[in-house]
Measured scan of single mutants.
Amino acid sequence: TGEEYIAVGDSTAQQVGDLTFKKGEILLVIEKKPDGWWIAKDAKGNEGLVPRTYLEPYS
């Protein structure tokens, strides 16, 4: 379980453990880390770190 967020920009994984996503994708945020990198899952079930500045709450 988690909260749904929509990507407001494209982000390409810079290192192992990062999640690549495109603008408009809905991501499920699993954990919000205080350093600004959140753990999220995409629609295909891929999981990784995403920069919170690229996400907005999805409603």
Rank of each mutant, 00 (worst) to 15 (best):
D18V: 15
W37K: 11
K32E: 04
E56S: 08
K32R: 07
P34K: 10
K44W: 14
D18P: 06
F21A: 01
V29Q: 00
A40T: 03
S59Y: 13
E47A: 09
P34A: 12
K41Q: 10
D35V: 02
V29K: 00
G36W: 03
Q14P: 09
L49Q: 09
F21G: 01
V29E: 00
E47Y: 14
A40K: 01
P34V: 09
T20D: 08
R52Y: 15
I39L: 13
K22D: 03
I39V: 13
G24D: 05
I30V: 08
A7G: 03
K33C: 14
K44Y: 14
K22R: 10
Q15E: 10
T53I: 13
S11P: 04
V16R: 10
Y5A: 02
E4A: 13
D42K: 01
L55K: 01
E4K: 14
G9Q: 15
E4H: 13
T12V: 14
D10R: 03
T12Y: 13
F21N: 00
I39G: 02
D35E: 06
Y58K: 08
T53E: 15
E31Y: 12
I26N: 02
E56A: 11
W38T: 01
T12I: 13
G45N: 05
S11T: 07
W38C: 03
K23L: 06
E56G: 04
G17N: 07
T20H: 10
A13E: 09
Y58G: 05
E4S: 12
K32N: 02
N46L: 07
E4N: 09
G9R: 15
K41V: 14
G48H: 04
G48N: 01
Y54N: 07
G24H: 04
L28S: 06
R52S: 15
P51V: 07
E25S: 07
T20G: 08
K33H: 11
S59E: 10
F21Y: 05
V29F: 00
T1D: 12
V50E: 02
P57D: 04
K32F: 06
S11F: 15
P57H: 07
R52A: 15
K22Q: 08
E47M: 14
V16W: 10
G36M: 04
D18A: 15
D35G: 13
S59I: 13
Q14Y: 10
F21H: 00
E56M: 12
D18Q: 15
T1E: 13
P57Q: 07
A7R: 00
Q15G: 14
P57I: 07
A7K: 02
L28R: 08
D35W: 03
G17L: 05
G9L: 15
T1W: 13
L19Q: 00
G9D: 12
I26S: 03
G45P: 00
D18N: 14
I39A: 04
K33D: 06
G24Y: 04
G2E: 08
S59K: 13
F21V: 06
Y58D: 03
Q15A: 12
G24W: 05
K23P: 03
L27G: 00
K32Y: 05
Y54Q: 14
L19D: 00
T1N: 12
V16S: 11
E47F: 13
W37N: 11
E47H: 09
I39T: 07
L19I: 05
P57E: 08
T53D: 15
W38Q: 00
T20I: 10
K33F: 10
D18R: 14
E3G: 07
L49C: 08
G45D: 04
E56F: 08
L19W: 02
L27W: 01
R52T: 11
K44N: 13
L28V: 10
K33L: 11
A13R: 15
K33W: 07
D42N: 11
I26A: 03
V29M: 02
V16M: 11
K33Q: 08
N46G: 05
G24R: 01
G48M: 03
A7H: 01
Q15T: 11
A43R: 10
A13H: 10
K44R: 12
P57S: 07
E56P: 01
T1V: 13
E31L: 14
L49N: 08
A43L: 10
G2Y: 14
G2Q: 09
G17R: 05
G17H: 06
V50L: 04
K41C: 08
